[in-house]
Amino acid sequence: MQLIKIDKARYRRHLNRVIVGSIAALAIGSLAIAQILIALFPDASGSHFHWNLLGVVVTTLTIGWLLNKYRTHAYMTEVVYVWDLKQALNKITRKMPKLKAAAQAGNADALLALQYSYAGSRLLWHLDDNSIVMEELSVAQLELDSLITKYNLTLNTDDYNDLILNQF
């Protein structure tokens, strides 16, 4: 997965609408389903927990199915790209201790994975206005840059493929 430049305003606008739409659909759908089921199958004890739970589960599954169905729609481009990028970065994060050890030893694939992780994190944090850990990222990037220089490598994040993580 290549890192691409995202229009921050468009991404935030679309993400907020998807979130608000999902929340509204969850609230309305789960209440509607629960109320219909309660009307059709009343419980003498007055406990309708199972119908309420079923309404939430059915609505959640429906929303998930709809988001998956429309993930290729142009409106969802930035939102889906960021979701996929977060998954790719999570794969790297799970391997981080092994990657850092291999990077210290000069493994080019480990260095590339770290470079991709830092660049992707910088992109995500910029999109989400998360500046809290940017300083830590800068320090980690400086350490990585010194290792890249030490081993005389030139890394391009476009060359990253998550299959290289299989060796770690």
Score class of each variant (00 low, 15 high):
Met1Gly: 11
Gln2Pro: 09
Gln2Leu: 02
Leu3Arg: 07
Leu3Gln: 07
Ile4Trp: 02
Lys5Cys: 01
Ile6Tyr: 02
Asp7Phe: 08
Lys8Val: 07
Ala9Asn: 12
Ala9Arg: 14
Ala9Gly: 00
Ala9Met: 05
Arg10Gln: 05
Tyr11Pro: 01
Tyr11Arg: 11
Tyr11Ile: 08
Arg12Gln: 15
Arg13Asp: 02
His14Pro: 00
Arg17Thr: 11
Val20Ser: 12
Val20Leu: 15
Ser22Ile: 00
Ser22His: 01
Ile23Asn: 04
Ala24Cys: 14
Leu31Ser: 12
Ala32Glu: 00
Ala32Val: 14
Ala34Asn: 06
Gln35Val: 01
Gln35Leu: 13
Gln35Ser: 13
Ile36Trp: 06
Leu37Tyr: 05
Ala39Ser: 12
Ala39Thr: 07
Leu40His: 09
Phe41Arg: 02
Phe41Val: 12
Asp43Ala: 15
Ala44Cys: 04
Ala44Ser: 13
Gly46Ser: 12
Gly46Gln: 08
Gly46Cys: 08
His48Ser: 12
His50Met: 14
Trp51Tyr: 12
Trp51Lys: 13
Leu53Pro: 01
Leu54Arg: 04
Gly55Trp: 06
Val56Trp: 09
Val56Tyr: 08
Val57Ile: 15
Val58Ala: 13
Thr59Met: 11
Thr62Cys: 10
Gly64Glu: 00
Trp65Ala: 09
Leu67Met: 10
Thr72Gly: 03
Ala74Thr: 12
Ala74Val: 08
Tyr75His: 10
Tyr81Phe: 14
Val82Glu: 01
Lys86Glu: 13
Gln87His: 11
Ala88Phe: 00
Leu89Lys: 09
Leu89Ser: 10
Leu89Trp: 05
Asn90Ala: 14
Lys91Gln: 10
Ile92Asn: 06
Ile92Thr: 03
Ile92Ser: 05
Arg94Leu: 13
Lys95Gly: 04
Met96Leu: 15
Pro97Phe: 10
Leu99Ile: 06
Leu99Phe: 11
Lys100Leu: 12
Ala101Val: 11
Ala102Gln: 07
Ala103Gly: 07
Ala103Phe: 03
Gln104Cys: 02
Gln104Arg: 11
Asn107Glu: 08
Asn107Gln: 07
Ala108Gln: 09
Ala108Pro: 01
Asp109Phe: 04
Ala110Gln: 03
Leu112Glu: 02
Leu112Phe: 06
Leu112Thr: 05
Ala113Trp: 09
Tyr118Met: 08
Gly120Glu: 03
Arg122Glu: 09
Arg122Cys: 05
Leu123Ser: 00
Leu124Gln: 08
Trp125Ser: 10
His126Thr: 14
His126Glu: 11
His126Ala: 11
Leu127Asp: 03
Asp128Val: 12
Asp128Glu: 15
Ile132His: 09
Ile132Pro: 00
Val133Asp: 05
Met134Thr: 08
Met134Glu: 10
Glu135Val: 04
Glu136Ile: 08
Glu136Thr: 08
Glu136Asn: 13
Leu137Tyr: 03
Ser138Asn: 14
Ser138Gln: 13
Ser138Met: 07
Ala140Pro: 00
Ala140Tyr: 04
Leu144Asn: 02
Leu144Lys: 04
Leu144Ser: 07
Ile148Arg: 01
Ile148His: 03
Thr149Arg: 07
Lys150Tyr: 01
Tyr151His: 11
Tyr151Lys: 03
Leu153Ser: 00
Asn156Cys: 06
Asn156Asp: 15
Asp158Pro: 02
Tyr160Pro: 00
Asn161Ser: 15
Asn161Pro: 02
Asn161Lys: 15
Asp162Phe: 13
Asp162Lys: 11
Leu163Gly: 14
Ile164Lys: 05
Ile164Trp: 05
Leu165Asp: 01
Gln167Arg: 13
Gln167Gly: 12
Phe168Cys: 03
Phe168Glu: 02
